[in-house]
Amino acid sequence: MRVLRFLLRRLLQLLPVLLGVVVLTFLLVRVLPGDPIRTILGPNATAEDAAAARARYGLDQPVWRQFLDYLGGLVTGDLGTSIQSGAPVAGELAVRIGPTLELVVIALALALVVATALGIWSARRAGRFGDHTVRIAALVGNSLPEFWLGLVLVLLGYSVLGWAPAPSGRVDPDTDLSLLTGADLLDAALTGNGPAFVSALHHLMLPVLTLAIVIVAPLLRSVRASALEVLASEAYAAAEAHGLRGRLLLRGYLLRATLVRLPALAALVFGFAIGSTVLIEYVFSWQGFGQWALRGLLYRDYPVVQASVLLIALFYVVVFLIADVVHAALDPRVRIS
């Protein structure tokens, strides 16, 4: 109950921030140079054609009018119509989110597990060879350009070794996967489509690996640093000095105290991963949200840009909210009321 009330209050606090984001993107997109109508009509269109197109998308209205229309649409769940494709933005968006979330969530989960295990392992060997190796590896991971790493993995996995699929598409079309959520792995599992599941997994392998490698580094560094702090703490020394040992020491006195600060960083890394997926989707021709938003941005497709910016902001704040709740659950010192 307390958690629910806390969530509700935080969500209400978020409204002004989101409204700010809405206003800002709406204005920014219109103030800056570039014209979506020109880009769809091409250079040969006449002034009349342009005016007609403008009227079709409501761009002939005064800006405040456009804004009110947009806001009204938002409230009813209508995100407008894409200028490029002419399809409703909400519909396009729905198909695009699944594949991206699938990628990010799997990679982040993988990275969190690896970071926790390796970070604690490394901290317990602080200053020794194993620890130094892990730290250097994390630094390299931190320095890798994800788009290049993706290409190198394609080069090795597909071009040289040949056991990864070509970097195009997310599932073998022959498997007849029916679309539910857009996340192919989930859809295959839900429909009990075995071959599609295997195929989706196969296609996910390299992009997930790419993303996981670049996001594991900051998580690993953070886990190692907090584990070191806990190991050096008087509380841990006291547990050791009183003869506690083995799993009890690890689980009761090291693990939870170490993970306390991870949620906030994981939320930041989630944002970083969203940024990285734009590049990774490009490399693997992954028809996800990143690709869609990027195209919208390049063509000045106002409704698409506005919808994607709003969605990212919304995602980001919700993820931070979740992080706060997890933090409160892990750390008894944090009060959520």
């Binding site: 509380a235 841990y236 547990a239 009761g252 006195y253 939870r256």
Partner: peptide
């Protein structure tokens, strides 16, 4: 206070 683990009752 410092010698008691903060995350365990």
């Amino acid at each position: 206070r410092g010698a008691l683990s903060p995350t365990r009752t």
